[in-house]
Each structure stands twice: as structure tokens, then as C-alpha cells.
């Protein structure tokens, strides 16, 4: 088979239109098909299967026969624990955007500068991201151990003369303790994103601003931050989606407890799907999660359509 000759576009535009188009389409389909088949099989098909199962009361044994229509969806919305899980997820999102990302940005600006030993700092800050989530969770479980003789944090607290804190067992602070672990794990990743973004900003702009008399803060606020726009958008997007789907850390550290204090959407889904084996109900929860993520993605894309200063995209 010979390669198709490069067509003279100007000449062939009208005459060859259909066959050429067809050829292109076939070629595209051919190259796309392996990925497309996998995508359809492992992403799209399961979504439709979930939709099907979500209309049943099904324990996973034998075929699903107890059809309940939309009852699962209604029940989920009336479950206080589900509402609590949504609240917790929103809290994690708020904390991530309000604390974790500014921290990452600040560190990125600092280690992006002429700081002695900045390479070392970069490595240090990025290290936690290398660890798997389960590792991080177990590490923090050890740190948070309520027994002052076994847990480092409580040992310090007791040494300072205070009563030991139930980092994970106190319903009021369990979620915050988990957020600390989350931040420790992920700020390095966002820092790396910002570092890459900073490198795209031409140094001339900052120099010009400095010549015009801008101080460091003005430089950051009026030059760096706006030019970092697209990176921040990406980082916020990843952070929100990650928070919406947060599972491993919470599951290993508290399983959503104590008494749902740190429940997230994913641990809620897991409980119904794989502890209670109410697979229909679990599928319905998964669909809610899917729609939340979808809706967020659509709205976010619409809101952040503003073109990027640097690339014009």
C-alpha cells in the first residue's frame, strides 16, 4: 500500500472533496480505534451499566430483578449522611483553594527565585507527592496516634502541657486532620505546576516593571499572577476534581468516621457498594458523583473562557 500523494489543495479542493474526506475519516478512525475501543469499553460502557443497575435494588448475587425506578436517587438525596458528605467535600474544596494552592504558589515563587539551595528546597517540597496515598495515610496515622507514648504529635502536645488531642477521633477536627495530610501530599504537585508556569513568563516583563519602579509585591500582583492565569486555572481544576473524588486517604485513616465526621462522596459510595452490597444504591451514588464532576467541568470551562495573556488561548 502506498502512501496517499500530497494533494494540491488549491486545485483539488472542489473536485476531490468527497473521496479525500472519506480517506481522511477512515485514517482518523483507524488511528483512533484502539484508544476509542478501550475508552468505550472501560469508561463509557460502565457508566451506562451503572445507570442500568442504579434503578434496581440489587445485592450483586444473580441477576438484578428488583426494579425500583428512581427510588435509589430519591433516597440518597434524603439521606443526611449524603448531605454531610457533600458538605465535607465542599469544605475540602474550600480549604484546598483557600490554603493549599496559595501555599503552593508562595513556595513556587520563592523557590523559583535566586534562593541559595533552591534545588534542594524544590526536591524537599516535591517529595511527599512521590509517596503513594496509602503510605501518606499510614504515616499520618502514626503521627496522629492518640497515645502520647506512640504518636509524635500528641507527645509534643503533652510535653507542652496540654491534654492529648484526638486528632482523628474527635469528630470536630477529624476532617481538618485529614486535610492536613492531603495538603502535605499535594502542595508539592501544585508547586511544580506553578514552577513550570513561572518559567514561561519572560524575565523582561519583570525587569521592565522593576525599571518602572514596581516593588516585589506589585511585580507579583500585576505581572506574575495574571500571566500565571492558565496554570492557576489548571491547578484549581485538578484540585477541585481531586477533592470531589477523594477516597484513599480518608478510607485508610478514618473510613469516613468517626460517625460520618469525615465522610466523603467516595467513602459513602464505597460503604453502600462494597460493605452493604447494595450495588444499585452504590451505582446511583456513583452517578451523582459523575454528574457533580461533569457539571463542575462544564461550568468551569465556561467561566474561564477568558484568553490567556501569554498564549492568547
Amino acid at each position: 500500500m502506498s502512501l496517499p500523494a500530497i494533494p494540491n489543495i488549491l486545485k483539488l479542493k472542489r473536485v476531490m472533496r468527497t473521496p479525500r474526506r472519506l480517506q481522511d475519516t477512515l485514517l482518523i478512525a483507524l488511528f483512533l480505534s484502539p484508544a476509542l475501543i478501550l475508552f468505550l469499553l472501560f469508561v463509557i460502557y460502565p457508566i451506562f451499566r451503572s445507570m442500568y443497575f442504579s434503578t434496581f435494588n440489587w445485592n450483586g448475587l444473580g441477576p438484578a430483578v428488583k426494579f425500583v425506578a428512581l427510588r435509589n436517587f430519591v433516597q440518597i438525596l434524603t439521606d443526611k449522611v449524603f448531605i454531610k458528605a457533600i458538605g465535607n467535600v465542599l469544605l475540602i474544596v474550600a480549604f484546598s483553594l483557600g490554603l493549599q494552592l496559595p501555599l503552593a504558589l508562595g513556595l513556587a515563587v520563592m523557590v523559583g527565585r535566586e534562593l541559595p539551595g533552591r534545588g534542594l528546597f524544590r526536591t524537599f517540597f516535591f517529595l511527599p507527592y512521590v509517596l503513594s496515598e496509602v503510605n501518606v495515610a499510614i504515616m499520618f496515622l502514626l503521627l496522629y496516634n492518640p497515645d502520647p507514648e506512640r504518636g509524635l504529635l500528641n507527645a509534643i502536645v503533652v510535653r507542652l502541657g496540654a491534654a492529648p488531642i484526638g486528632w482523628l477521633s474527635d469528630p470536630h477536627i477529624a476532617l481538618f486532620s485529614i486535610f492536613l495530610a492531603l495538603t502535605w501530599k499535594y502542595f508539592g504537585f501544585h508547586m511544580l505546576l506553578y514552577l513550570a508556569g513561572l518559567q514561561n513568563i519572560p524575565i523582561e516583563l519583570e525587569e521592565a516593571a522593576r525599571i518602572d519602579g514596581a516593588n516585589s509585591f506589585q511585580n507579583f500582583w500585576y505581572i506574575t499572577l495574571p500571566l500565571l492565569g492558565s496554570t492557576i486555572r489548571t491547578s484549581v481544576y485538578l484540585s477541585v476534581l481531586g477533592s470531589l473524588q477523594q477516597f484513599i486517604l480518608v478510607q485508610v485513616m478514618t473510613k469516613g468516621g468517626p460517625v460520618n465526621a469525615s465522610e466523603t462522596l467516595a467513602t459513602y459510595m464505597y460503604r453502600f457498594g462494597f460493605v452493604r452490597f447494595q450495588l444499585g444504591y452504590g451505582s446511583a451514588v456513583a452517578l451523582y458523583m459523575f454528574f457533580f464532576c461533569l457539571i463542575f467541568s462544564l461550568i468551569y470551562q465556561r467561566l474561564t473562557r477568558r484568553p490567556d495573556y501569554l498564549t492568547g488561548l
Binding site: 496516634n145 492518640p146 497515645d147 484526638g166 482523628l168 477521633s169 485513616m253 478514618t254 468517626p258
Partner: peptide, 16 residues
């Protein structure tokens, strides 16, 4: 509840 009210458990028992 009568038992729990006496706080008879070790610290951090809710997540142990």
C-alpha cells in the same frame, strides 16, 4: 448509654 456515660474507654477509641 449508661456504660458510655462512664467514659470507660481508652483515648481515641472512636477511630481505633
Amino acid at each position: 448509654q449508661e456504660l458510655v456515660a462512664l467514659q470507660p474507654f481508652q483515648p481515641g477509641f472512636l477511630t481505633a
